[in-house]
């Protein structure tokens, strides 16, 4: 799949900055459908893991209060140009996606 994730990693002075955007509805499960008054079922990302050359650099647990189409940015040490960065997510319905990119 891999269409849901945009990721960009850039290294400068030994510090790699990773920025990513995921396309996801992030429903809290508390919102109501305005027409029918029924609750919209919760559907949100619970787990995001980013790996650098196979080694975990961040592990996020998210709740429904993260905004729709979530954004995540963080920094880590030790990345080099052309290293592999892999981001994967899983949501509460068991859907998942992952993507790999190279550090620039």
């Amino acid at each position: 799949m891999a269409k849901t994730i945009k990721i960009r990693a850039k290294v400068k002075d030994g510090i790699t900055t990773v920025k990513s955007l995921i396309t996801h509805p992030m429903e809290t499960g508390l919102r109501k459908n305005k027409k029918t008054g029924e609750l919209i079922p919760a559907h949100f990302i619970q787990e995001v893991i980013v790996k650098h050359n196979g080694k975990e650099v961040i592990n996020c647990e998210w709740g429904g209060s993260i905004s729709k189409n979530p954004y995540l940015a963080f920094k880590f040490k030790g990345g080099k140009k052309d290293d592999t960065i892999e981001l994967s997510w899983k949501d509460n319905k068991g859907q998942s996606d992952s993507v790999t990119a190279k550090i620039r």
Partner: peptide, 10 residues
């Protein structure tokens, strides 16, 4: 990993 994270919340 540096203690520097950004995201967006509701």
């Amino acid at each position: 990993t540096l203690p520097d994270v950004s995201t967006r919340v509701k």
